[in-house]
Design a protein around this nucleic acid. Sequence first.
DNA 1: CTGTTTATGTCAGCCTTGTTGACTTTCCAA
DNA 2: TTGGAAAGTCAACAAGGCTGACATAAACAG
Lengths: 166, 166
Amino acid sequence: MADGTTGGENLLFLTDEQLRKGIEAMFFAYRGFTADPDRILDELAYGRAHHRALHFINRSRGTTVNNLLAVLGVTKQSLNRVLRTLIEDGLVESRVGREDRRERHLYLTPAGAELERQLSEAQRARMRAAYRAAGPQAVAGFRQVLEAMMDEGIRAQYLALKDGKA
Amino acid sequence: MADGTTGGENLLFLTDEQLRKGIEAMFFAYRGFTADPDRILDELAYGRAHHRALHFINRSRGTTVNNLLAVLGVTKQSLNRVLRTLIEDGLVESRVGREDRRERHLYLTPAGAELERQLSEAQRARMRAAYRAAGPQAVAGFRQVLEAMMDEGIRAQYLALKDGKA
DNA sequence: CTGTTTATGTCAGCCTTGTTGACTTTCCAA
DNA sequence: TTGGAAAGTCAACAAGGCTGACATAAACAG
């Protein structure tokens, strides 16, 4: 990490003032990050919770309810409310597990996949613009800092997901 | 994993897969970002909304309610509910404006400043650890991408706040 | 087979924090 | 004096978190 710093001993980027700027940047950027899919969701009477469910079901096809709970970090009651509407509306399919028949494996239907694609493309478009504006080196730094900011267990989960499978 | 981070004309960092990883990193990192202050707030029967109000009042002492609404991006009714409890609990003081007496200028009381300090230090500690782990160059990239991700108007506001005054 | 644990789903109720709409009070400015 | 901006209040509502209690089915341990 003795990158741009002289002797690696330049710690000015760790002042409280620098940290406060980073905190505010996270706050404002996260608002932008969710703004575009939120607009689409509003028209469909869905919320951010539906988006998250669709995202991670698409991400890990056939995942179980329990897996999804762990990733999303909410209670089963909370997830179930969202999942029920998605299943009723024909966006998600719930299949009984073959090995363990207590488990439900979740899949997007064609309609669900289409909505997911629409939502994630809206979000990717902003991310793409930001990445392009900042450049590859900035993107690498962006990812490094975000990974370091995650909770321990979540980071492990994220890093596993990053390459591996469901 | 020859990530698209080699620079120049290599645009591999803009693939949908790279963008999806960035999206998930934002999601998981934001959870970590809010986790520590949330634990403190829970014990005090306050929520994230109270934290945000305290943060920006501390950030811009004497700011008006209208200014705060613009920064926080919520309705005055929503903010007012939070602000009322903070004033009742003696954490925030609301002073009638001297030039325009319709305006209320907001200040933290000593108790409010102490809680703000406690909350923001919890948040800064995590940010500091992440910054330190990633290094100054990564931090610069982190900030660049976040700024590029904000909405236009918000970015202008943020950049003004970054150096300037209330 | 029996009893326990696990995975899931559901009902009921509560909280925070966002929303809209209607209305009042204050007070600056034309 | 009148219009309108700033601020506050009341009411109602919704999304999406939470807890607790309970039901079912399947797997598993003995």
